[in-house]
Amino acid sequence: MWGQVWPAFVNALKGGILIKTLKGRPISRGCGQGEALVTNESISFLGSVDPTTGIVIEEKHELKGQSISGKVLVFPAGKGSTVGSYVMYQLKKNGTAPAGVINRSAEPIVVVGAIISGIAMVDSTEPDAITTIKTGDMVRVDGTRGVVEIL
């Protein structure tokens, strides 16, 4: 009986009854799960995020004061200094890195940072992650397959 029910159950999940699935492009391998933190603003890791605490410190950024640690960080793209890649690595070593990253359109600073740090990352999802995922949603990022699930 399980042989028939289980696939149907999984299909129901994938069909969006219980789990909403966003299909994107795999960027950095591995899986990460956490509460979503969504912003419409680009992020520069150098100077904008405190590597010790994982708290956004950039003045005027809409995430200012919030922690990215353990979150699935959803933002349009990276910006600023290429040293930002190393800052992501530092966050990882300090245990303050995001659990996963979803970008609308990946650029090299965040791509390099996610890969060297082993942070799961996906971009170009369909439907668009920034408008589909809400801050606080429990999200799983599969950077190997390029799939995002809202649990």
Binding site: P51, T82, V83, Y86, V87, Y89, Q90, K93, I116
Partner: peptide, 14 residues
């Protein structure tokens, strides 16, 4: 990515 002034502790660690 060689000068400590530009890459700092983050780069040194990596």
């Amino acid at each position: 990515g060689v000068s400590y002034k530009t890459i700092g502790d983050a780069g040194l660690e990596w």
